[in-house]
Design a protein around this nucleic acid. Structure first.
Lengths: 343, 343
DNA sequence: GGAGAAGAGGACGCGTGCTGACCTCTACTG
DNA sequence: CAGTAGAGGTCAGCACGCGTCCTCTTCTCC
C-alpha cells in the first residue's frame, strides 16, 4: 500500500540522517526503482529530499517550504510535552501557539505515554527576585519578529520610564533581535534618529507601524546580545512594579554586578571599582538583603527609607554560637548590633 | 494521488477535532465512499479514528498505539522549538531526547521559520539562589517513571545526607510520582518499611531494582504534591554542594518561610513564631543577605563562620542621604558601621 | 415510534497508475 | 578510468483505487 509506504519513508528519513537507495528499498520491501519514484513523490509533495550521487551517495531529508509531519518517538514526545508544559515566560509572547501545540500533542498521546506524562510533576521555582513578567502582546512579538526578519524599519511610540508622562516619544528604529531576559521581552534595535543602539521593552511599545522601508544589514554591537541588553542603562525596566526602589553605590566592579544582579536591576559603572545600582524589591529589607549578598561595601544613595531600613537591619541580627544542645536557645531579644549573647 | 491525500487527511483530522464524512470528501475532492476507505486505511495503519453514527455524526482522530506524525503550523513549530531550546532543568532528566527532538525540528525548519527562530534570543536568568542542579541519570528517571506507572514496588539503596557515611540504607518503596522542584528531582513514594510517605532525591538513589511486585492504589497524602515535597524536612537536600551552610532560627512562621525560601533550604517549625532554617549559599555574605531578606529578627545557630559574617556585614553598610546632585558622592572608605559620610 | 441523517461496508466494473525489469546517463570517489 | 550510486525513460502487466449503487446500522429529533 502506497500511503503506508510513503509515511514510512518519511519517518525513515527523519529517523536517520542518511540512507542509500538500496537500503530504503530493502527496508520498504520494494525495488530501488520504486524507491526513487517514492522519493520523487515526496519532493512533489513539498518535502525536499537532497541526494548525493556517486559512491557513498545518500538520500537525506532537508528543509522544505513547510515543516514535514514530525515523527517522534516516545521519549521525544514526552520531552516535547514536558517542555511545552513548563514553558517559561519566554514562550508566553507566542500567544496560544504553545497551548495549541500542547493540547494537540496531549490529545494524541497514546495511553501509555499519557500515563507516563502524568507521573511527572514539574514545579518551576518561583524566583523571589523577579516580579511576574508583564504581559506582552503576541501580535506585537510576531510583528516585530517579522520586521526584524524582513529588515523593515518600524515606527512606534515608546512609553517612557516616567510613569505618568502624557505619552511616549516617537521612535523610528531598525529592529534586529528580540531578546527575552528574565521574563521580559526586549527588542534590540538601531534608533535611526538617535543614531544609536537601544534595547526597547516590548510592553512599552505602542502603535507599532511598519514603514515598508528596508534597511541594510548592520552588525549588532556586541557578540553576546543578552549581555548588551543587560548593560543598557536605559532599557526601560521601571520602578512602577516593585513597591520599594532605590539607588545604591556598590563597591564592586560593574561586570561582577552584571553577573549577579537580577533582571530588574539596572546599573552603570562609576569607575572601575564602583557601580551604581538601581533596583527594586518587594520590601526594603529584601532590597538590603540583596545588597548584602554581594559581600561588598555599599552606600545607600536614595531614598531615605532604604537608609532607614539599612539601619534597622543592624538591629535584627543576633549571633549565637550554639552549645551542644542549642534547642533551648530562643532568639535573643537584645537589639544591640553585633552583640553576642552569652555562650 | 493517494499518499498525498492520506497525509492531508491526517492533517485535517489533527487540525480540527470533528469532521463529517461529506466535509472531508469535499475538502479532499473525492467521493464520500473513498473517504470511508481512506479512514479505514488510517485505522489499518494504527491511527485510530473514532466515528459517531447518526445525525451530527463525525470522524475524529483519537489516541492510538503510537503518536501519529505531528502536523504543526508555523506558530506551533516555533513554540515547540523555543520551548525545547529553553527547556529548564526539569527536562534534563530525560537525557538526550530533548536534544534529539530539537535537532530534528531545527534541521527540518523551513528557512523562513529558521530565520524567525534566529531573531529570538532567550536567556534564562541564572538564579543566584540555586546551585546548578545535580545530574540525574535519565535511565533512572525512565525506570522510576515506568515503575510508578506500573505500580511496581522498587528496592534501592538511599545514600544518606551525611556525606561520608559508608553506604546508604536499603529502601523498599512504592513509587507514586516524580516531582521536579527547583531543578532537583524527587520521587514521592510510600516507604513500606517505615510505613510513611517520603520524598527521595533521585541523585541519591542507587542500585534501583524492580521487584516485580505490584502495589495497590494509594492516595497521595496531599493534593498539592509539590507542597508535600517542599514540606518534607528530610528530603535529602544536602550541604555538600554549597560551600557555606548554616542553621538559623528565624522569627518568622514556618509557612511564610516555606513561601520564600529557595529550593535548597529545609526548615522545621520550632513553634508558631520561630522556624529553624538550614540552608546553604555560595558565600557567607550571600547567606546573610538571604536571611536579611525576610525582614525578621533571626539568630545564627551555627557555624561560627556565619556568625562572624553577620558581624562583618554590619561594617559594610553605609547610609548616605544624597543631595540633589549626588553624583560626586564616592563611597566612603571609613569602615565605621552606620557611619555617615559627610554630605 | 418513525423519519431522516450519517457512518459502515459489500459488489462491481472501469481504468488509472503503480510496479518491476531493463536500460542509459550522470555525477562523484578513489 | 573504473566503480558506485542516484536519475529517469520506457514498457508490459495487473493490482487496486475509484465512483456508483446498494443495503444495514445507529443515533437524533420530531
Amino acid at each position: 500500500m502506497i500511503a503506508n509506504r510513503t509515511l514510512e519513508l518519511l519517518s525513515l528519513l527523519q529517523a536517520q540522517k542518511e540512507w542509500t537507495g538500496d537500503g530504503l528499498a530493502e527496508r520498504l520491501g520494494v525495488s530501488p526503482r520504486t524507491v526513487r519514484r517514492d522519493i520523487n513523490r515526496l519532493r512533489e509533495l513539498g518535502y525536499p529530499v537532497t541526494a548525493t550521487k556517486g559512491p557513498s551517495g545518500y538520500y537525506r531529508l532537508s528543509r522544505g517550504a513547510r515543516l514535514p509531519p514530525l515523527i517522534v518517538d516516545d521519549e521525544q514526545a514526552i520531552a516535547i510535552a514536558l517542555s511545552l508544559q513548563t514553558a517559561p515566560a519566554s514562550v508566553a509572547g507566542l500567544g496560544d501557539a504553545t497551548k495549541r501545540a500542547l493540547n494537540s500533542i496531549r490529545e494524541l498521546l497514546p495511553p501509555h505515554l499519557s500515563r507516563r506524562l502524568a507521573t511527572f510533576s514539574i514545579e518551576q521555582i518561583e524566583n523571589a527576585w523577579e516580579l511576574a513578567p508583564p504581559q506582552v502582546d503576541p501580535g506585537l512579538v510576531a510583528q516585530l519578529s517579522a520586521a526584524a526578519q524582513e529588515r523593515e524599519l518600524v515606527r512606534f511610540t515608546y512609553r517612557s520610564i516616567e510613569v505618568d508622562e502624557v505619552d511616549g516619544s516617537e521612535v523610528l528604529a531598525e529592529p534586529h533581535r528580540l531578546v527575552v531576559w528574565s521574563g521580559r521581552w526586549y527588542m534590540v534595535a538601531y534608533d535611526q534618529r538617535g543614531c544609536s543602539w537601544r534595547a526597547y521593552r516590548l510592553d512599552r511599545i505602542e502603535q507599532p507601524a511598519p514603514t515598508g522601508w528596508r534597511f541594510p544589514q548592520r552588525d549588532v554591537p556586541e557578540r553576546d546580545i543578552t549581555r548588551f541588553v543587560q548593560s543598557q542603562p536605559d532599557r526601560g525596566d521601571t520602578p512602577d512594579t516593585w513597591p520599594c526602589w532605590g539607588t545604591i553605590l556598590m563597591e564592586c566592579p560593574a561586570p561582577l554586578v552584571a553577573k549577579w544582579a537580577p533582571g530588574a536591576a539596572s546599573f552603570e559603572a562609576i569607575d572601575e571599582r564602583i557601580t551604581r545600582i538601581r533596583m527594586g524589591a518587594w520590601s526594603w529589607s529584601a532590597l538590603i538583603g540583596f545588597l548584602v549578598t554581594f559581600g561588598c561595601r555599599f552606600t545607600v544613595e536614595s531614598p531615605p527609607e532604604l537608609a532607614e531600613a539599612a539601619r534597622r537591619v543592624m538591629g535584627r541580627i543576633d549571633v549565637d554560637i550554639p552549645r551542644a544542645d542549642a534547642r533551648a536557645a530562643a532568639p535573643a531579644d537584645a537589639s544591640a548590633p553585633g552583640g553576642e549573647p552569652a555562650l
